[in-house]
Amino acid sequence: MTSQSPFTRALTDPAQPVPAGLVSPRGTADSKRFAVYRNNVHVSLVGALAARFPVTRQLVGEEFFTGMARLYVAQTKPKGPVLIHYGDSFPDFVAQFPPASGLPYLPDLARLEAAWTEAYNAADAIALAPADLSTIAGDALASLDLTLAPSTRLVRSGFPVGTLWSAHQTTPVSIPALSGSECVLLTRPQAHVRLTIIPPAACAFLEAIGQGRTLGQAAEAVLTVFPDFDPGAALVGLAGLGAFTTLTKELADV
């Protein structure tokens, strides 16, 4: 019996001949017929990457992107049929892809796009509203453990990737200055993903909260690095962007 193993090997390695036992109606092996399957696999998976990394693609052009994506597809197949997760390791591949080294911001831009899809598909949750915090006394607030919303993502970059990404959401694209680091926060407060460039101190604060520190511990840690940091303002701002889930009953009663 023609096993699916040689079929798969020939499918993913164009150097291999058409597997034995596969024929045209003339009874002969036919490379163009088998090439339809090879092409379907590559084109559909490159298409999945193009859909997840549209700005990366715009930045390098379609031809370059397709060439880069084909190499990724050749070495990394989806783990399963849910393609919204396909390409999680594509940003790391871009970082190691020598022809892209002239665009040092490209891997982080791709990381931002990967995170955007995660935020888009993350579980629904009710966001903590800034007003929810106003009822909590100061010392209770300091001992509060907030939970990040399932859609909250942070991307830190040595390049202004948030600004660069935003510039590509409109036409014509006006290319921003490509220097300066950025902390990009993705949230999904209502129906849509929202991108906000936040100050480094607020980013460190959010990371500390995400690591399970109480608000008081997180504020203290950030203040040692950023003495001017205002935890109260940051908390209200981040909550307003939908970065946290609502308090459970138990916590709200603290």
Binding site: M1, Y37, P78, P81
Partner: peptide, 14 residues
């Protein structure tokens, strides 16, 4: 699907 992963095409069966 095969050992290598998900191939994202509808492949034929004998």
């Amino acid at each position: 699907s095969h050992d290598e992963g998900y191939l994202n095409d509808l492949l034929p069966v004998p």
